[in-house]
Design a protein around this nucleic acid. Structure first.
Lengths: 209, 209
DNA sequence: CACAATCTTGACTCCTCAGTCAAGTGTCTC
DNA sequence: GAGACACTTGACTGAGGAGTCAAGATTGTG
């Protein structure tokens, strides 16, 4: 952090980050000791503390990097799309895609969400994601593409579906990616009902109360 | 577990369970030591190990009891309701109700889901819940009340929405219970679209195919 | 080469915490 | 009240892990 790194130093640092992320994901954060990590790298313990001031700092960095990476992908995915509802769909697809490709990082998010030390980071990341989504949701509501509802709530509901379906279907049941993507989008758009509904973008007339 | 408990013993045991559950929820499982617990109860350490063989066993018991309690409430809530879609709705309401009333246990579920030692229990519990829901979902599909889709997926999607909205809206944003309940149900039924749909529990008329 | 900065070593310290145990107290039962 | 069983005590053990540090190796630079 504080000192300048040579090329060799950069490499070592990345080596530590990558290995740790994987071990944290497979064995768990608590079950992975610094000693484990440096042993696997066949280096002395001081090496770790040359690059990171603590295990916690390392983990925070892993999380933050992952969050930024995911967000970057989401934004790249929707770039240039005009239809707000379509942007949402593309965002969902991009997210699932990223999660599928970085399963170990998904595991880390999952762990972090349940740990007091890190849950605030996850919350912050989710908030950012929902704020991003909120913009498109508002537009879509204004355009009458989707029902009137608090866009923040909608955003979080979508997030909940993505997280849970990803975990259960992809990680635990080993379902194929595409199917999960389609099911997720179908549920987010239509919920349980509404195969019977009028086709997609009808103007919203009279809400019930 | 193994020995018979006197009334005094039962009381002590419950005392330990209750206090631990609360401390695990507020300070975190790892941050709560057995020493903490017995100190707060002003008893010797041996007391703990008279009633429980390990910290892990205690936590498992807390989880299991909570899961059973939640399920009991869900089943009581839908008992006697004929309409399958309505049963689902009642089940969702009951779940949210229970989660709101036992926030500390919800926190424990959340932690447990992200920890390798306990996540299998959570998965199992979720599976049971989804299997319960699946029965009603299948019926509802057969009756043409909801769209055709894999009921397991639908069940998990609902679970994801419940969990996430509960956490974010109730625990983090402090939204009133009723609003969250309504929003959750609305999202599960209609997704983003379909304010235009026929009102909630109409008898299933003509399915599309 | 010199000498400075980066990087590495690994034994060591410090601490926390789960779990044990031998000895003691309280309570129930006959 | 005597013996049995339930409960309690709290110092102790042992394991394990985070983080330190003084000394040494390697690399970059003038």
């Amino acid at each position: 952090m504080r000192q300048r790194l040579t090329k060799r130093g950069e490499q070592r640092r990345r080596q530590i980050v990558d290995l740790s992320a994987r071990r944290f994901a497979t064995q768990g954060y608590h079950a992975t000791s610094i000693t484990d990590i440096v042993n696997e790298l066949k280096v002395g313990k001081g090496v770790f503390y040359w690059y990171f001031s603590s295990k916690e700092e390392l983990f925070r960095e892993i999380l933050l990097t992952a969050q930024h990476d995911l967000r970057r992908l989401q934004q790249a995915a929707i770039e240039g799309e005009d239809d707000p509802l379509r942007r949402i769909e593309l965002g969902i697809r991009a997210s699932l895609d990223w999660l599928g490709k970085h399963r170990h990082l998904f595991m880390l998010f999952h762990f972090a969400a349940g740990d007091e030390r890190f849950s605030s980071m996850i919350r912050k990341g989710e908030q950012v994601a929902v704020e991003d989504a909120t913009r498109h949701l508002k537009e879509a509501i204004a355009a009458g593409q989707i029902r009137e509802a608090d866009p923040t709530v909608l955003g979080h509901a979508i997030l909940g579906v993505i997280n849970h379906l990803t975990r259960v279907l992809i990680f635990e049941l080993g379902e194929p990616m595409d199917r999960v993507v389609d099911e997720t989008i179908a549920f987010c758009l239509f919920g349980l009902k509404a195969s019977t509904c009028p086709s997609p973008a009808s103007k919203g007339p009279d809400p019930s109360d």
